[in-house]
Simulated assay, not measured.
Amino acid sequence: MMLIEETSVPDTALPVDAFKAHLRLGSGFGTDSLQDEVLVSFLRAALAAIEARTGKALLRRVFHWSLAGWRAVDAQALPLAPVHAVSTVTIVARDGAETVIDPQRYWLERDAQRPVLRSTGAALPGVPKGGSVTLVIDAGFGAAWGQVPADLQQAVFLLAAHYYEFRHETSLSDGCMPFGVSSLIERYKSVRLGFGAIQ
Score class of each variant (00 low, 15 high):
125 P>G: 07
162 H>C: 13
49 A>N: 11
3 L>W: 02
56 K>F: 07
123 A>P: 02
5 E>I: 05
120 T>A: 06
117 L>I: 06
53 R>Q: 15
154 Q>Y: 11
56 K>M: 11
110 R>W: 04
191 V>E: 09
179 F>W: 09
10 P>W: 03
167 R>T: 11
133 V>S: 01
24 R>L: 13
142 G>H: 00
189 K>Q: 15
109 E>A: 13
158 L>Q: 15
31 T>H: 12
9 V>E: 02
87 S>I: 11
68 A>M: 04
58 L>I: 09
68 A>R: 10
28 G>C: 12
85 A>K: 07
112 A>V: 11
5 E>F: 07
25 L>W: 09
48 A>V: 08
73 V>Y: 11
103 P>F: 00
172 L>F: 14
48 A>S: 13
166 F>H: 15
14 L>M: 14
195 F>C: 08
97 A>N: 05
54 T>F: 05
47 L>H: 14
115 P>V: 03
189 K>H: 05
144 A>D: 11
187 R>G: 11
145 W>Q: 00
130 G>H: 10
185 I>N: 10
145 W>M: 02
183 S>F: 08
62 V>F: 10
179 F>G: 12
193 L>C: 13
39 L>W: 01
11 D>F: 03
39 L>Y: 03
109 E>K: 10
36 D>V: 05
17 D>M: 02
46 A>E: 03
31 T>C: 08
154 Q>L: 15
196 G>F: 07
100 V>F: 01
164 Y>H: 15
114 R>K: 11
148 V>I: 13
90 T>C: 02
12 T>D: 14
84 H>W: 10
14 L>V: 07
194 G>I: 04
195 F>L: 12
32 D>I: 01
43 L>C: 08
25 L>Y: 07
195 F>D: 12
125 P>N: 06
110 R>K: 14
84 H>F: 09
78 L>Q: 05
121 G>Q: 07
115 P>N: 02
153 Q>T: 05
26 G>H: 13
44 R>T: 07
133 V>M: 01
197 A>V: 03
154 Q>W: 09
115 P>M: 00
152 L>P: 03
63 F>T: 01
159 L>Q: 12
95 D>R: 07
29 F>M: 09
7 T>P: 04
1 M>K: 03
